[in-house]
Amino acid sequence: KRPMNAFMVWAQAARRKLADQYPHLHNAELSKTLGKLWRLLSESEKRPFVEEAERLRVQHKKDHPDYK
């Protein structure tokens, strides 16, 4: 399984919050909304998630050196 990218790291927590706020939204609508919200974030707001995704990528490479 591939490591999560920055969006997926962020969306993991954001999806729970959004689903709690809008329990009537279908998963497809949640995903579209999350995409729009992510694009509205500034680079500095995204930075911690980009850094975490990079950490996960490096760890994955270490754990699975033959993964392509």
Rank of each mutant, 00 (worst) to 15 (best):
R2P: 04
P3F: 07
P3M: 07
P3Q: 06
P3L: 04
M4F: 10
M4S: 04
N5A: 08
N5H: 09
N5G: 08
N5W: 02
N5F: 01
A6L: 00
F7Q: 02
M8V: 12
M8T: 08
M8F: 14
V9Y: 12
V9W: 05
V9R: 14
V9P: 00
W10I: 06
W10S: 00
A11E: 01
A11P: 00
Q12C: 01
Q12G: 05
Q12V: 05
Q12I: 06
A14D: 00
A14Q: 15
R15F: 01
R15H: 02
R15I: 02
R16T: 09
R16M: 09
R16V: 08
K17L: 03
K17R: 12
K17I: 00
K17N: 11
K17A: 03
L18M: 11
L18V: 10
L18S: 00
A19F: 02
D20E: 14
D20A: 15
Q21C: 12
Q21H: 04
Q21F: 11
Q21P: 01
Y22C: 15
Y22D: 03
Y22P: 03
Y22G: 07
Y22A: 11
P23Y: 13
P23T: 15
P23W: 07
H24C: 04
H24G: 09
H24R: 14
L25T: 01
L25E: 00
L25Q: 00
H26Q: 13
H26L: 10
H26G: 14
H26T: 15
H26F: 08
H26I: 10
N27M: 13
N27C: 09
N27D: 12
E29K: 15
E29F: 15
E29S: 14
L30N: 02
L30I: 02
L30E: 01
S31K: 05
S31H: 04
T33R: 14
T33N: 03
T33H: 14
T33Y: 14
L34M: 05
L34W: 04
L34P: 00
G35L: 04
K36L: 00
K36D: 05
K36A: 01
K36F: 01
L37I: 12
L37H: 07
L37E: 09
L37D: 05
L37V: 08
W38D: 01
W38P: 02
R39I: 01
L40Q: 15
L40C: 10
L41Q: 03
L41T: 03
L41P: 01
L41F: 11
L41I: 12
S42A: 03
S42M: 03
S42L: 01
S42K: 13
E43T: 12
E43A: 13
E43Q: 14
E43H: 14
E43L: 14
S44A: 09
E45I: 15
E45G: 13
E45F: 15
E45P: 06
K46T: 07
K46W: 02
K46L: 01
K46I: 08
K46Q: 01
K46H: 07
K46S: 04
R47A: 10
R47F: 03
R47V: 08
R47Q: 06
R47M: 08
P48T: 10
P48S: 04
F49A: 13
F49G: 14
E51W: 02
E51G: 08
E51S: 04
A53K: 10
A53G: 11
A53H: 03
E54S: 09
E54D: 14
E54L: 05
R55Y: 03
R55V: 10
R55K: 12
R55E: 13
R55I: 08
L56D: 15
L56E: 13
L56T: 10
L56V: 10
L56Y: 12
L56M: 11
R57F: 04
R57I: 05
V58I: 08
V58H: 14
V58K: 13
Q59Y: 03
Q59N: 07
Q59L: 08
H60Y: 06
H60D: 10
H60F: 09
H60V: 09
H60E: 12
K61M: 08
K61C: 05
K61D: 07
K61T: 08
K61L: 11
K62C: 08
K62W: 06
K62D: 14
K62A: 12
D63S: 08
D63K: 07
D63P: 07
H64A: 11
H64W: 06
H64M: 11
H64V: 14
H64E: 14
H64Q: 14
P65F: 10
P65Q: 06
P65R: 07
P65V: 11
D66I: 03
D66K: 05
D66R: 04
D66Q: 04
Y67D: 15
Y67S: 14
Y67E: 15
K68N: 08
K68W: 05
K68S: 15
